[in-house]
Design a binder for these strands. Structure first.
Length: 721
DNA sequence: GAGCACTGC
């Protein structure tokens, strides 16, 4: 019955798009449909809410540019669009494309990428409302762990990483008729690769429309890169922000920031304050101090009440919500109450707080740096760029005119700050990126058209790593192993370990360990509760190392998953654990799809620890430190002195330690470690240790040479027998 | 004897 009705409906459905030729439409045609009574995409009457929203959309700055936009895309495959905050570009441009492409009539889609998941989800919801459709139907989103689309979907918001993953199995992105790269100025790894890829794809796919959207004024670079693409500039809708500089450089920026907060609080009219600092510890200290000093001022009746809220990503969602609370109210006629948010960079892009009128910017942030010489990624407090400073200041002008206090001199701003932060691709270890590019069919990486090419040495390091892992041949072509590794959303060492684990009959355990390593730390150690936290962790400790400790904690968690108190009592980060469960599920699906066997050793083999650690070696054999005669450790590959991280479960001082990562903080630590037997390093599929000539001279190398000699002798003896 | 800026698949 229903089917029949639907058929009749379909037959009776008026051809709303009659007379509209894809890519030759006008804004008048589109607006006529938008102003109609019936939704042309669902054939249902438009709701009242739709009409209200439509009025608002027509007032957005980007609306005035609709016809301009259409004429640009109709004459150029690439278009660069610069739109400041409040222009409406993210919600409107994809809809303008919908009416111009008419992709839904030919079974194609329009994609709009975002660097962050929450943005993809929330914008998709907003646009579904604007188009008067149910989210997940005509308009949907696709992020990791969640594909909220249907066969009807023709407009899709997604993370840039998700589109990149799709490109790995569909090299021409054939299901899309148009792709919008939003927030391109953020220059994430994925955006940069996508830009290079789209430039390449468009050489053969002349039917693919590409829009690059950016918030900065640095559009020239994007235009030039995309074959001198035309530019559309859309003004934003923000309030002016007055910028102040210090007359001299500040020695102690935290102290200066606190002082500025208190000055604003006692002298300036109502309005909340946002302070940018670099990390958790700094933020917590500053919050305590501001609270203490502020209460003192209040007792002297000089100021109104203040509420101080820290903000950083590792904070629980509940704690993060506090930034949206209303400022405390001052006494009638008295000085105003004020909210003060002390935040990391997270408030620069990811989170927007309304009501901020004052911004304090010391001009610093923690930034990732990669040193290809010692092959270490680390975080370093570094000066921000001019673009970042501008973005930070802009946070003061979202609801009314604001003020930004830069805790550095104007000369420093002009002469010392870079225009833009170096793109991530120039600051990262590229192991994963290179594997992805190879999987995307890019064979010649050196000649790949990066917008900003990474350092050749970084590329060399990545190729070398992938070659040792057996992912690339000596001529850098991809191996079967490499293709298998690329199927997993993991770093190369992890994916190698995972795909080798069935050979060790412990893939079930390695799956868990892999998931736990790829999420934020599950063990928490709150300030002031270090002792009970350590005691709780001690119950999970496996003396052979941290990977096994992680595994123990996971297994206990699974037993107690339904007990809501368990995580808190055991100082386990529930968010991380849940995330690990999710990641594990996803990895398991890929394993099954690729026909990799799932087998367990725990519970039926008393040598499980040895077996699991051997499996870990199959991916991490290059990350081993040796105990030198002095008692200190040094890495084998670089003879880099390192210290076992104090959080490690390893309490003895074994001769050989395999580590997951090196962290450069107060010292050079190796973190997440297991004790290994040197013989296991020779038992894998790699020949990394057969030729030691390129190894730095150190005690570890001499020890290895001894082992090789011994193994050779005993091997010869075995042959004779 | 300890610090994880922030994202993403």
């Amino acid at each position: 019955m229903d089917v029949k009705n639907n058929t009749i409906d379909a037959l009776n459905q008026p051809d709303f798009f009659e007379g509209m030729i894809p890519r030759k439409t006008t804004s008048a045609q589109a607006e006529k449909l938008e102003d109609g009574e019936v939704n042309p995409f669902t054939n249902k009457p438009f709701s009242k809410k739709y009409k209200t929203i439509l009025q608002g959309r027509r007032k957005l700055p980007v609306h005035d540019q609709r016809e301009n936009f259409l004429s640009l895309i109709q004459s150029s495959q690439f278009v660069v669009l610069v739109g400041e905050t409040g222009s409406g570009k993210t919600t409107q441009i994809p809809q303008y494309l919908v009416y111009n492409e008419l992709s839904h009539l030919k079974g194609k889609q329009i994609a709009c990428t975002q660097p962050r998941r929450v943005a993809a989800m929330s914008v998709a919801q907003r646009v579904a409302d604007e188009m008067d459709v149910v989210l997940g139907q005509e308009v949907g989103y696709n992020i990791r762990f969640e594909d909220f689309t249907s066969p009807k979907t023709f407009l899709k918001y997604m993370t840039d990483g998700m589109l990149l993953r799709e490109a790995m199995s569909d090299h021409t992105l054939s299901r899309y008729s148009a792709i919008v790269l939003d927030e391109a100025h953020e220059r994430t790894l994925s955006t940069d690769i996508l830009m290079g890829l789209l430039k390449e794809i468009c050489k053969t796919r002349k039917d693919l429309q590409v829009i690059i959207m950016s918030a900065t004024l640095d559009a020239g670079k994007f235009q030039k890169y995309f074959n001198d693409a035309p530019l559309l500039n859309v003004p934003g809708r923000t309030f002016p922000v007055e910028v102040f500089y210090t007359s001299e450089a500040e020695k102690d920026y935290v102290e200066a920031a606190i002082r500025t907060v208190l000055q604003i609080h006692s002298n300036e009219p109502e309005g909340d304050i946002l302070v940018f600092l670099t990390g958790e510890e700094e933020i917590e200290t500053a919050c305590r101090e501001i609270k203490w000093e502020g209460e003192d001022l209040m007792r002297q009746n000089k100021c109104g009440p203040l509420m101080v809220v820290p903000l950083y990503s590792t904070l629980s969602p509940v704690a993060q919500q506090k930034i949206f609370a209303a400022a405390p109210v001052g006494r009638p006629g008295g000085p105003p109450g004020r909210k003060i948010v002390v935040s990391t960079n997270i408030a620069e892009t990811s989170l927007t707080i309304d009501g901020i009128v004052y911004v304090i910017d010391p001009g610093l942030s923690k930034q990732k740096v990669y040193n290809p010489r010692i092959r270490i990624e680390s975080l370093l407090v570094s000066p921000i760029s001019k673009a970042s400073a501008q973005q930070r200041a802009g946070r003061a002008g979202r609801t009314r005119p604001g003020k930004a206090y830069r805790l550095y001199t104007e000369t420093a701003f002009d002469e010392e700050l870079l225009e833009q932060t170096y793109p991530e691709i120039m600051r990262s270890n590229l192991g994963n990126v290179v594997l992805q590019l190879k999987q995307l069919g890019i064979n010649d990486l050196v000649r790949f058209d990066f917008m900003d090419p990474p350092a050749p040495e970084t590329l060399m390091r990545a190729l070398e790593l992938l070659n040792y892992l057996g992912a690339l041949e000596d001529d850098t072509s991809m191996t079967k192993t490499g293709r298998l590794m690329a199927a997993f959303p993991l770093d190369p060492q992890l994916s190698k370990m995972l795909i080798e684990s069935p050979n060790h009959k412990c893939s079930n355990e390695i799956l868990t360990i892999t998931a736990l390593i790829s999420v934020p730390p599950i063990f928490v150690r709150p300030r002031g509760a270090e002792k009970p936290a350590d005691a709780a962790k001690a119950k999970f400790v496996h003396q052979d190392g941290d990977h096994l400790t992680l595994l123990n904690a996971f297994l206990e968690y699974k037993k107690n998953e339904r007990n809501p108190q368990w995580c808190r009592k055991n100082f386990i980060n529930e968010r991380s654990m849940k995330s690990a469960v999710n990641v594990r599920k996803q990895l398991l699906r890929v394993m099954e799809k690729k026909g990799l066997a799932i087998t367990s050793v725990m519970g039926n083999n008393r040598f499980y620890s040895t077996i699991i650690r051997k499996a870990i070696c199959s991916g991490y054999f290059m990350q081993v430190a040796h105990r030198e005669p002095s008692g200190h450790y040094a890495t084998l590959k670089d003879n880099q002195p390192v210290v076992l991280h104090p959080s490690s479960s390893i309490k003895s001082k074994p001769e050989w330690i395999l580590y997951d990562e090196i962290v450069l903080t107060s010292r050079t630590y190796i973190r997440t470690c297991v004790e290994v037997n040197v013989d296991w390093l020779f038992e894998g599929t790699s020949d990394y240790y057969t030729d030691l000539s390129s190894f730095p001279n150190c005690d570890g190398k001499r020890a290895l040479e001894q082992v090789i000699k011994y193994r050779k002798r005993s091997g010869d003896r075995k042959k004779k027998i």
